[in-house]
Design a protein around this nucleic acid. Structure first.
Lengths: 245, 245
DNA sequence: CAATTTAATATGTACGAACATAATAGGGGA
DNA sequence: TCCCCTATTATGTTCGTACATATTAAATTG
């Protein structure tokens, strides 16, 4: 059974998303909500803590509980949200458009193996795309992104990708049956190669941000989201996000 | 008076930091802690929630409460930690060394004003530094960082900086009396200028990551940490972190 | 002795009560 | 009318209890 405080939190989140509690408005008091949902005030408070933690509402003594932000779209669970946060922080926001340039199977040579932290010869599915600012009429690209996915899942990923190219979210949510996901990410400054020049609408040799993402699926036992930074190479840093789903 | 759950959380955090509860060990049960601290189990749980939220411990039904990570050094409050997290994610980790290259008062021309989102003519204190991987004998720089601080606080900051060049943390913690801090941050790919070439140990024109930070102090009324992404320019993104202290 | 079942255990969820505290609203006095 | 004080109010903190549930450890059984 769904936990009561979770139910209350979800109900309120949906009410905010639906506009029943517009941004800036004040929610009913905790006692009123407790009565409406037929739960104790403690339970309402537990729900409120969630909403507050996610930044949806702010609370002040006797100032009521104000709705501070619009609720996020439904269907995105905690992990996706965490990833989206990481994404928002590290990359270019969730609103940036992506255009897939290339989907290819690659075998790691020694250089790539070093960069990805794997043994040479390992197979990867590499999805290269270009990001641009949405709504920009000139459609100027802002970034080149390489996504590396564990080669063992290449076929599955290809199938799930289908026509639409929503790499992000699609992967995490549609590849079921896998109990574990690991993501590594690098950001670096690079010179624009001849291959990149045309899609990036710039000249070869220009300066560009490069983002490399790695998706791994395993069955290791790790309990929590962790995040660490390993500045290994010059002009390069990486993060890792682990989570047992 | 310090709230009891805060006291318990602090006591446990310090106990973990001191090694009384080493990483990997299991804490006493909630009932035992309640007895030791002479509080109710609810209070202990409230404290535990804090520790869990900060990633210090993990809890499992009847598996006890495990210590998962070393406690951070004392003296860093929530805001500093949040900043350090952001820092860890966006930049090169808290362990990277910094070497200050230049501290200068600058007046924003039209270009800088656009980049910083201010009116031309506004005064800023600009602190430029180079980051390098700690422990690297070759001391290879990995990044050039420009920190812009509201010119109104230039003198104060200069005074507080003193000899040691811990820009980060020093600022946030030592500039008291200000109830509000706003930070903006940009990461971009740039070509190495002639000025940067020598400290970065590379040739002018090479590709480098550039990080620009902006510190503002105001008295606006905003209650919570928020974070948004504004991909304004090509090869550029920014984040904002707001917090009332 | 191995496999299964059962009991003990620590955390998870939920309730209700009481008092504290800060913000607001209202009333009284100058 | 304006200011100050007071009463009200909604959230903040803390307590104690009860039961649920997942995990571990012990006991039972084949």
């Amino acid at each position: 059974m769904e936990k009561r405080y979770a139910f209350v939190a979800r109900a309120l989140t949906e009410a905010i998303a639906d506009g029943r509690h517009p941004v800036g408005s004040v929610l009913p008091t905790e006692f009123e909500l407790a009565e409406q949902f037929a739960v104790s005030r403690s339970t309402v408070r537990a729900a409120m803590q969630e909403l507050q933690a996610s930044g949806l509402v702010s609370r002040k003594r006797n100032a009521g509980t104000r709705v501070e932000a619009a609720a996020p779209a439904r269907g995105s669970d905690g992990f996706t949200q965490a990833l989206n946060t990481i994404e928002a922080v590290q990359q270019f926001g969730t609103e940036t458009e992506r255009h897939v340039q290339r989907v290819a199977d690659v075998v790691a040579d020694s250089e790539l193996a070093t960069q990805l932290g794997c043994r040479p010869g390992r197979r990867w599915l590499c999805i290269s795309s270009v990001r641009m600012v949405p709504g920009d009429a000139t459609r100027t690209p802002i970034c080149w992104t390489d996504v590396y996915i564990d080669g063992a899942f290449a076929d599955e990923v290809r199938a799930k990708m289908g026509g639409h190219h929503e790499i992000f979210g699609t992967l995490v949510e549609k590849i079921s049956g896998r109990r574990f996901v690991e993501i590594r990410q690098d950001i670096s400054a690079v010179g624009v190669s001849r291959e990149m020049a045309e899609p990036l609408k710039t000249a070869a040799g220009a300066h560009a941000l490069s983002i490399r993402r790695q998706y791994l699926f395993a069955s290791s036992e790790l309990a929590e989201v962790s995040l660490s930074v390993h500045p290994a190479d010059r002009f390069r840093y990486s993060t890792r996000l682990l989570r047992q789903s």
